[in-house]
């Protein structure tokens, strides 16, 4: 669990991804691109949920396929706690995107792997804008 502290943390982001190498790369880049954000990381849905309960981040960026608790299940539970959380889903399987297969889930953003940082940044920035609006 990492967190980059800032005198006035403006936005917090939860990153859930079971492949550690990818998680590390994402954190490295996002920390530089969004220096004002607080970043939390988890390698599975269960840890992700615990972190969410503890810190209530504004944005959740998550993979779908994770051990112990999958992305969809985690999102479901997080929504129950804080419905206006922003969700950005990262997925590699265009056809088989959802754990359960049937229900259509709405996410704020849906990004295909391999991740293009440009796309990820744009998604995060849009979420930030929406959050700013809501807080205003």
């Amino acid at each position: 669990m990492e967190s980059m502290t800032d005198p006035v943390p403006s936005v917090s982001i939860l990153l859930a991804e079971d492949e550690e190498a990818i998680l590390k790369l994402l954190v490295t880049i996002l920390a530089r691109k969004f220096p004002d954000a607080v970043l939390y990381t988890a390698v599975n849905g269960r840890t992700g949920l615990e972190l969410f309960k503890a810190h209530l981040p504004d944005i959740v960026i998550t993979d779908i396929k994770m051990p112990e608790m999958g992305g969809v299940q985690m999102v479901d539970k997080i929504r129950a706690i804080k419905p206006d959380t922003k969700f950005i889903i990262l997925t590699g399987d265009p056809g088989k995107s959802f754990d359960s297969g049937e229900k259509e889930f709405e996410f704020d953003h849906y990004i295909m792997k391999p991740v293009l940082f440009g796309v990820l940044f744009a998604a995060i920035e849009q979420c930030l804008a929406e959050i700013a609006q809501q807080q205003a």
């Binding site: 190498a21 880049i29 590699g92 391999p114």
Partner: peptide, 12 residues
């Protein structure tokens, strides 16, 4: 996975 990691690494 290797492709994902490769993609992120290069973009870095």
């Amino acid at each position: 996975q290797p492709l994902n990691i490769l993609g992120l690494t290069i973009q870095q």
